[in-house]
Amino acid sequence: MAKRSGRRGFNTRTDNKPEFRINEHIRVPEIRLVGENVEEIGEAVGQQLEAGTVYPTRAAKDWARKVELDLVEISPNAKPPVVKIIDFNKFLYEKKKKEKEIKAKAAKTVIKEIRFGPNTDDHDFDFKVRHAKGFLEDGAKVKAYVHFRGRTIVFKERGELLLLRFLKELEDYGTAEALPKMEGRRMIVMISPKKSKKK
């Protein structure tokens, strides 16, 4: 059974509002013990333990002490609460690491906006197509929209044709997530980059 280095006191956590109750802070009479290491802990403490079984909390605290790990409450609202016997510091580290990875993945989705008017000329259109190609090659999404000011709202068809032409120009670089649609006074289309990034 792997033991953690730098053994700390069993009841040293004094956070005002800890996210998880551990060790002596768990005061319910019974708990449900889960985890991949339950049988291994059972061997270490000379008990036959099964994951998912309900045990007296006092006994579970004793087992955690014997293997120099922590009793950590994972699901406090379950009846009885669900706990694991694990290294709490390692558990927190893994949790933070996962949260960081999720955050990093979310942050990678960059959206670049490209705005048109219903009367955009060819020169301006080509200029915006070049920009969009660059954004898509870099892995960013492109949100293209036609903004209708005042009476130009009557030119919805013109705006749709413009966006469809824009999509056609970018078909080697990205794919439309849906057909152009109206949102307020804007007709919008979202384009996701194709898998191959800039070489």
Score class of each variant (00 low, 15 high):
P56R: 09
E43P: 01
E99R: 11
F91N: 00
R115E: 10
V54F: 06
K108C: 04
V82H: 04
N37L: 01
V83C: 14
V110H: 06
R65T: 15
N89Y: 11
I41W: 00
K90Q: 15
V72M: 03
G42V: 04
A59Y: 02
V72D: 00
K96F: 12
I102P: 06
E40N: 12
N89D: 10
K84C: 04
K84E: 10
I85V: 09
K84L: 06
I111V: 13
D87P: 02
I111P: 00
K100W: 13
D87Y: 05
A64P: 05
G42H: 03
V110T: 07
K105G: 09
K61L: 14
P80S: 12
E68F: 11
F88W: 02
K95D: 15
L92G: 10
A64D: 01
W63A: 08
F116T: 15
V110P: 01
A51Q: 07
E43S: 12
A78Y: 07
P81C: 13
V83H: 09
I74E: 03
I114D: 05
A106M: 04
E73G: 06
I74T: 08
V45T: 12
L92A: 14
R65A: 10
L69P: 01
E40P: 09
A60W: 01
I86Q: 10
N37A: 00
E36Q: 14
K96R: 11
T109N: 06
G42R: 04
P76Q: 03
K108G: 09
A59P: 00
P81L: 14
A59D: 06
F88C: 00
T57N: 02
F91Y: 10
R58E: 15
I111W: 03
A60F: 05
V83E: 04
P80I: 07
E94H: 14
I114P: 03
N89P: 01
E101Q: 12
A107M: 15
V45F: 08
E50Y: 09
P76K: 02
I111N: 03
